[in-house]
Nucleic acid binder design. Sequence first.
DNA 1: CCAGCCATAGGACGCGGGACCCATTCTCCT
DNA 2: AGGAGAATGGGTCCCGCGTCCTATGGCTGG
Lengths: 212, 212
Amino acid sequence: MIRIIIADDHRLLLEGLAQALDGIPDLEVVATANDGAELIEAVDTHQPDVVLLDIEMPKLTGIQALRKLPDGGPATIMVTMHTDDDQRRRAQTAGAVGFLSKATPLPDLAAAVRAVNAGHNLLTADDPDEVMDDHRQPVLDEGAAALTAREKELLQLLASGVTSTEDLSDRLFISHKTVKNHLANIYEKLAVADRAQAAVEAIRLGLHRKDQ
Amino acid sequence: MIRIIIADDHRLLLEGLAQALDGIPDLEVVATANDGAELIEAVDTHQPDVVLLDIEMPKLTGIQALRKLPDGGPATIMVTMHTDDDQRRRAQTAGAVGFLSKATPLPDLAAAVRAVNAGHNLLTADDPDEVMDDHRQPVLDEGAAALTAREKELLQLLASGVTSTEDLSDRLFISHKTVKNHLANIYEKLAVADRAQAAVEAIRLGLHRKDQ
DNA sequence: CCAGCCATAGGACGCGGGACCCATTCTCCT
DNA sequence: AGGAGAATGGGTCCCGCGTCCTATGGCTGG
């Protein structure tokens, strides 16, 4: 479990990102900070593995806060609105080991967090993309990866509250028997015993939202 | 359930915020968009109740996208980095009914979403703060509010994948019969038909993580 | 004090769900 | 050409689940 602190003065980003990262199995957000001063205190209190730090912040800017962090402290990734080579250099000089835009997709951020936690410096690496790729992990476990398209459709319905064989067969335009066959296959792949457990698992896997 | 679409080119904010809002029982993020063009399409497809729209976006700015939305479409709240009276006026002229900084705390955003969904215009209201305060608490279904402590315990187990009457009675140290009585009461209060639907509903209500 | 609610427990009943069989048709990959 | 897997549909069997009804003890508020 990688322990993370996020610092950003934009609370919507801060609170949203905290919840999103917490939802990733191997990541844990132990604290959040609204400005540089709070960050210094939170790092001291919680001793995180990784810090995500916004460059633009009131009171103490990200770079200033970064300089105040102890040597040998947490690996720090700067997060910024506009990517700017000049700021990137200053971040590196101040001790950052990563530099990402706020336009980065969430899985990339997660990969970067794992990479710097493993000791990599994404700012000095020969091939940062390759380092990142090495720390991507499949979102789904192997059971879920083996699900067919039709089985996912059925799971989506289950997770949205369509639970009876009758309703499922109506929605999918197939017979009761076929629904029960699909369900039996799903139970085996997800290692569950009944449709209630399958629904819970489907939601955990994020299959309840949007198609595909 | 208030159906929401979020548009922002900063994916960390977009994906984080989407997950955070989805965690609120009466809110549902039905789609996200990375730019104005995607937003127009997503609104057409999903017909949301409320749109959260970043002002600064590539291709089509928030204001431009807002103008392209149909009259009588979703209530739109502009979300912006730097609060700027000039932009606020332009947003209002273009048809926005709310205007918030990205530094707004999450509960305030949720309150604003509920307020505009209820027909309020936060830009023209006499006392916007009072309108917001009136919508601060999530409107939980009355059924869920009527759940007893024991029923919530049972629902937590259900939502964590303990689904058979046998397992439930073992975990709660009560007889099979009592479990079935509790379940029947839960079904009535949540207006569901079986334990699979109850599990889905329990997760939606946020009863799956930590106690209380 | 007693009415009302909650948690507990039991009995009886009918239907649906899950387990284990099977077959057919397609598509895709080798 | 052949094989693997996916999607479809069928049959049987039995236990579990959901429904209805009843009952008792404990707590609480009017």
